[in-house]
Amino acid sequence: MSTRVAPPGLACLAVNGLSHAYPGARGPVAALDGVSFSVRTGQFCAVIGPSGCGKTTLLHVLAGLIAPTRGTVTLPPRSPGRLVTAVVFQGISTFPWMTVRQNVAYGLRALGLPAAERRRRVEQQVARVGLADFLDAYPHQLSEGMRQRTGIARAFATDPDVLLMDEPFGSLDEQTRLRLQDELLGLWQGSGKTVVFVTHSLDEAARLADRVLVMSARPGRVTADIAVPFPRPRGYGEVRSDPAYGAFTARLWTELAGSGRPAAT
């Protein structure tokens, strides 16, 4: 079961011996098997792996949506006015029956904040994702990219210790995805937020993260832990034209494809 005590040292988040199995028709199906890692405060950590490797299960365990079969998750203690974890989901990220304002305010309901503070946070975050003119619009009036921005604003509004992102840009077209990556980096830099970002895109991991965890196919294990060498800020052009870029993504691919080189970092 997950415990919520501050991890020692600089780590914001620590996962220890985490295993999870789903009940299946022929006995339990293992999704995660002995996953251990920790993430320092303020680090942007990407998790990549083949589909069905348990990335999403891992994220759901971190978010407290699933109780793991075995192992522990250590998170910072809860402080007033903040959530410990906030999640940005893939695909459906907004409630269609709520306006942008109501959607972004959703995470603040449980925090017991005064109305003026809730309003201030909502308007600030909505403005930061560029939706100030759409505060009272319903999701069906927005594009997919704008709906995803709403989900991001909702997460930031709760001022979380850890931001959990589950392939948040997975269903966007390429250009919108690049634009949202830029916006996310802009929001994250200087926020001090610890981020765990699940993605199936090597480019996305290379562009956004400080560090990439590679997971194996089911049951998911962490098979490599790789530092991302590119300097920040990371414009799309700069990262792509960095001579090390090709070699880096090739290395990620080699690790993913499971040719078995042990992790160097």
Binding site: A86, V87, I92, Y106, R109, L111
Partner: peptide, 14 residues
């Protein structure tokens, strides 16, 4: 869609 219930629970809805 189960996603709606997931969002609610992830943001602390009882």
């Amino acid at each position: 869609d189960p996603a709606y219930f997931k969002i609610a629970r992830a943001y602390g809805a009882d």
